[in-house]
Simulated scan of single mutants.
Amino acid sequence: MNTISWSDFEKVEIRVGKIVEARVFEEARVPAYILHIDFGPEIGMRKSSAQITKLYSAEDLPGKLVVGVVNFPKKQIGPLMSECLVTGFHDENGDVALCVPDKKVPLGAKLC
C-alpha cells in the first residue's frame, strides 16, 4: 500500500449527496445506473454512472444519501459525461455496496 501525505488527502473533496434520480444506463457495457445527485448549494447537482445494479434497484435509490468524490475531472462514459465518483465497497461476490453515512448530515458535508 502506498502512503500519502495529509496534504494529499486534503485535496480530495469527498462530500455527501442525495440521489434525486436513478435510471438504467441503457448504453453501458456493464450494467449500471445513471445517478443525478444533489451535493447541496455549494456544489449543486452532479451526474455519475454507478455499477450497483446487483444490490440496488433504480426505484429504491432516490432519497438515499451517498458519499462521492466531487473534484475529479469529468469523464466521458459512453454518451454520459460523469461529473463525480460515487464510492462503495465490493462485497464477497464482487458486487458494489454504496458507502453511505449512517446518520443524517447536510448535503455537501465534507468527509473529515
Rank of each mutant, 00 (worst) to 15 (best):
N71C: 11
L35M: 04
K104V: 11
T3Q: 01
E27H: 10
I4D: 02
G94Q: 07
I34Y: 00
G40F: 09
D8G: 00
E83C: 04
E27M: 03
G40A: 14
V67T: 07
M81L: 04
A32Y: 05
P31C: 04
V16P: 10
K103P: 05
G17D: 08
P62H: 12
G63H: 15
F25M: 06
K104E: 15
V24H: 03
R29A: 09
Q51W: 00
I77R: 04
R15M: 03
F25Q: 02
F9T: 07
T53H: 08
R46S: 02
D91V: 10
E27R: 00
I14M: 15
Y33R: 00
D91S: 12
D102G: 10
M81W: 00
R29K: 15
C112N: 13
L55E: 12
V100C: 15
I43L: 13
L111N: 09
I19R: 00
K110T: 11
D95P: 05
K47T: 03
G44Y: 12
V12H: 00
A50H: 10
D102T: 11
M1G: 15
E92F: 08
A58D: 02
P106D: 11
F25W: 05
I19F: 00
D95N: 06
F89Y: 11
D8R: 06
V16R: 07
K54A: 13
E42A: 15
V16D: 00
L35A: 04
G40T: 09
P73Y: 05
A28I: 02
S5Q: 05
S49G: 10
R29S: 15
V69W: 09
F89I: 11
H36F: 12
I77C: 04
P41A: 06
L65M: 12
F72T: 10
G63F: 09
K110Y: 13
L107Y: 07
P31H: 07
P62T: 12
G108Y: 09
R29E: 13
V105C: 13
V70M: 10
D102Q: 15
P31M: 00
C99T: 06
V100A: 05
V69Q: 10
S7P: 08
D91F: 04
A50C: 01
P101G: 08
A28T: 05
Y33D: 02
G40C: 04
K75F: 02
